[in-house]
């Protein structure tokens, strides 16, 4: 694990993003279970669904896993494709926020 790569918790990844697993930041039986399901370092993970208040839906080695957010927070990944989490959350904030953002944008333009 080097500090040069931009790593972030899996829970911050967004729908449609592909990430690479760097490490699990915990151990014990649950960490081992994640590893046994294929979530080991260097594994590519596709985020199929990341919605607040729901487990995350991932594609790992051809299988679909639903993962508690509490766990996803303890999984360190780096981006392979898709926007970096530091960028503004486009399209993923729900329709309310999108609407508000659009309005704000309109106002600055006018």
């Amino acid at each position: 694990m080097s500090d040069s790569v931009k790593s972030f918790p899996l829970s911050d990844a967004r729908t449609g993003q592909t990430v690479e697993l760097i490490s699990l930041t915990f151990n014990g039986p649950t960490a081992l279970r994640l590893a046994e399901l294929g979530l080991v370092p260097h594994t590519e993970v596709q985020v199929l669904r990341a919605r607040p208040g729901q487990p995350m839906l991932l594609s790992v080695r051809e299988s679909r896993l639903a993962l508690d957010r509490r766990l996803a927070r303890k999984v360190l990944v780096q981006a392979v494709t898709g926007p970096l989490p530091a960028e503004p959350r486009a399209g993923r904030g729900g329709w309310m926020r999108r609407l508000r953002r659009r309005r704000r944008r309109g106002r600055t333009r006018g």
């Binding site: 151990n27 960490a31 590893a35 080991v40």
Partner: peptide, 14 residues
């Protein structure tokens, strides 16, 4: 440091 059990699992998957 990540744990011997995890290292073994990783090796198997490799």
């Amino acid at each position: 440091p990540e744990g011997v059990d995890l290292a073994i699992a990783e090796h198997r998957y490799k």
